[in-house]
Design a protein around this nucleic acid. Structure first.
Lengths: 251, 251
DNA sequence: CAATCCGTCATGGGT
DNA sequence: ACCCATGGCGGATTG
């Protein structure tokens, strides 16, 4: 599992270590110790000398973690170039990419530990509870939104975006449905409003707009009603409350 | 720097290691090896047995990294409880929080390495190029948006959100300005539209709406014009293009 | 390439 | 708590 480990390496050794193990692109590298970090790209940042943990994964992605916080302090999701070199007696790591043009530079002042781990066993990962799944379930059971509803299309692309569900109600009127897996906000109302306006313009007559979500914020509901749109409470989860009043999607 | 290190620890040792070093909340812990991960909360996920790197920071945040990708496969930003125990002869880590109620469970099948690092030196971190900085600069130099503009308020909270800049133009007409540090999208137009409508309702007469950003998408521009709103190209960056036509904010 | 939207978004700031 | 908005958002998808 441990391919290589260095304790308090000197700049030259660390540089060699980094260049060697990043080249193979088959292991996870980490360096812990005192460093400075600079970033320049869509924004710019500077981190004064402090204790950080640097991670470089197989795919060349780089992240620099501060001692707290879930998100890395600096990162580079996709590196086009990843090189280490000695400058002014220090090991410096450059991680750059084009489009957008961005550069992260790590200056190692006092590396305590450098590790290369054989970490490559990919395993299956499944996530449930996404909006996609909610869409699948409602496309199969549109009566959960409203009795008599017929789904015509899913992910229908119009120039203002993608309509989650495009349907027709019992009276033959067209309906745009916007889904949210969580509490719906004013943004969702804006989205729905855009889609309804677009559908309206296509000349099929009056189009209804329904926002289907487990809940909605008070301002969003007010805005929704002011625009003549509708809200349907749809439990997005198997263990949704009150199965009688709010039947589960996944039966 | 290295507080403790175990190689291929047995379940009991790993459990003790985890409980000991998470309790002190003053070091960064990592475990690399074969594991299974389950999550249940706002969504649910399962990762089959594979090679992962588990990080636990001082603040109790947990992240489980797969061999590739910038984002962790599973995570828990804030843990209310973080405990390890032996179950069925395996070390199992539970990380839970309330509000939202979420649980991440890691089952260690074959831990190769457990490390506790003294990593606590926080250092100053500064980011430039944020929308906040853009707002500061434009509040000082509103003439970059339009000659004769006077800023009345910043971050003015209305029930539909926060207006970036509230101003009055040379003719005394009220102006709502929405800023974007990057390319403005239809969402930004929706935001601006909401704010203008809210300001309008307050009864100060006709209110102008200006979207100030370095660029705008074509559909957003179309929508903007259809709503009678305006766009101003504002370079958000010191090294913005063509200083003559597009003066820098940071002079 | 551009544009859109989802996300266990995270994170911060306001009421 | 709720609600809103930003982010170097990342990531996927589609045209």
């Amino acid at each position: 599992m441990i391919r290589a480990q260095l304790l308090t390496p000197d700049p030259a050794s660390l540089t060699t270590f980094l260049n060697t193990h990043t080249r193979t692109r088959d292991c996870l590298i980490q360096i812990a110790g005192l460093a400075e970090v600079n970033y320049h790209g869509r924004a710019a940042s500077t981190a004064e000398v402090g204790a950080y943990l640097v991670l470089i994964k197989r795919d060349g992605s780089l992240q620099i973690h501060a001692p707290t916080g879930i998100k890395p302090m600096n990162w580079q999701p996709r590196t086009d170039e990843l090189t280490a070199r000695v400058e002014h007696g220090r090991c410096i790591l450059h991680a750059s990419r084009r489009s957008p043009e961005e550069l992260v530079r790590v200056t190692f002042l006092h590396p305590h530990l450098a590790l290369a781990l054989n970490l490559y066993e990919e395993a299956s990962f499944t996530l449930s509870g996404s909006e996609k799944q909610m869409q699948d379930a409602l496309a199969r059971h549109p009566e959960l939104i409203e009795p008599g509803l017929t789904v015509l299309d899913r992910e229908l692309l119009v120039d203002s975006g993608g309509i989650d569900l495009y349907a027709r109600d019992a009276q033959g009127q067209y309906v745009v449905v916007e889904l949210k897996r969580g509490r719906a906000t004013q943004d969702a109302v804006s989205q729905l409003g855009r889609y309804v306006a677009t559908a309206q313009k296509s000349g099929v007559g009056a189009v209804r707009g329904i926002l289907a979500a487990p809940s909605i914020t008070a301002p969003a509901l007010k805005e929704l009603r002011a625009r003549g749109l509708e809200f349907r409470e749809i439990g997005a989860w198997p263990d949704a409350p009150a199965p009688a009043a709010l039947p589960s999607l996944f039966d």
